[in-house]
Simulated assay, not measured.
Amino acid sequence: MAKRALVTGSAGFIGYHLCARLLSEGWQVVGLDGMTTYYDVRLKARRHAMLSQNPGFRAVEGLVETAGLVRELAEGADAIIHLAAQAGVRYSIDAPRSYVEANLIGTFEVLEAARATKPAHLLMASTSSVYGANTEMPYAEVHKADSPMSFYAATKKATEAMGHSYAHLYDIPTTMFRFFTVYGPWGRPDMALFKFVKAILSGEPIDIYNHGDMRRDFTYVDDLVTGIVRLVGVPPAGGAAGPMDSLSPVAPFRIVNIGNGAPVGLMDFVLAIETALGRKAEKRFLPMQAGDVPATWADASLIEALTGPLPRTGIDEGVARFVAWYRDFYGV
């Protein structure tokens, strides 16, 4: 019998790629997405439409924070993978209430669903933003993450604490992912890669924050999805994988970084985009934005200890794949 997964945020960037991978591996997938207007809903609708071509996929439109909805959809699921969230560091300054509703209340609904239905594994997305003001790098899961620099990061750190409490109280095997700057085809329009490509092709300037002195651990979406799918089969149990393991001493709960483990300078990232497009960008250098951090860098030793070595797509190849998708999708 095919395994069943409930994926929240299934029409999102990462959710779409994850559902496609699960379907290709024979899973039955129920995908829940709120189709919110944070960015172009047509992009989300196209992703769901492509997934729906597979008879193993069932699309459900609804907000994750709707009382009882996730509980209804989770019945019989072997794995619940919770990706739905209000994303974005900068938007959390302008619209913080949406982060309370989607991230806090939404995660509460997922936890209640897991408490009722007892999946073999509950997996939930956090973010590298929870490392906040930490200066010790690479970021390791056992490092403190108590100084969030944005309300977005604060809500995601809160979901980690919520997840741990439910894992302890109700014996729910739970893994939290901390994602590092995910990019690739079908990416979000609010992310730098999408914005830069669109601006350069339109002959408009791109905004370079902190005057270009920034580094990000860019992680190609296919590599990230490989990590998620492998972790589905590794619920927290037994002994620690080593001193780097974040396994809780009082609950079947673990936090895992998923990142490339190789930070890239912002100006090198821009150069990769210019090379892929065959055009130079007009650059507008600006100060650091509120809530942002100058660098991220994942210590990937824990996930590799749990799942084996992960693919690591280089920035030039990954950016070129995104540009090819963008040109094809938008006909430019």
Rank of each mutant, 00 (worst) to 15 (best):
R4D: 03
A5I: 12
V7W: 00
T8D: 03
G12W: 13
F13Y: 14
L18Y: 11
G26S: 08
V29Q: 03
G31L: 09
Y39G: 10
V41T: 14
R42F: 13
R42M: 07
H48P: 00
M50R: 15
S52F: 02
P55I: 12
F57Q: 01
F57C: 00
V60A: 01
L63S: 13
L69H: 06
L73A: 09
L73H: 13
A74E: 13
D78E: 13
A79C: 10
A84W: 12
A87G: 05
R90C: 01
D94V: 13
V100A: 07
G106D: 09
G106L: 06
T107P: 06
E109F: 02
V110N: 02
E112Y: 04
A125N: 07
T127R: 05
S129A: 14
A133V: 01
N134V: 13
E141I: 10
S147D: 13
A154V: 08
T155V: 09
T155A: 00
T159P: 09
M162A: 10
H168A: 15
Y170N: 10
Y170F: 15
D171Y: 00
D171C: 00
T175N: 03
R178T: 03
F180G: 07
R188L: 06
V197W: 12
A199N: 15
I200V: 15
S202D: 14
S202Q: 15
E204T: 07
I208D: 00
I208Q: 01
H211F: 15
D213T: 10
R216K: 03
Y220A: 04
I228L: 05
R230M: 02
G233K: 02
V234C: 05
P235M: 08
G238L: 06
A241I: 11
P243N: 11
L247C: 05
L247E: 02
V250M: 04
A251I: 00
R254G: 05
I258N: 04
N260S: 15
G265S: 01
T275Y: 01
Q289T: 12
A290P: 08
P294K: 04
A298T: 00
A300M: 11
I315R: 10
E317W: 12
F322D: 08
A324T: 11
Y330N: 09
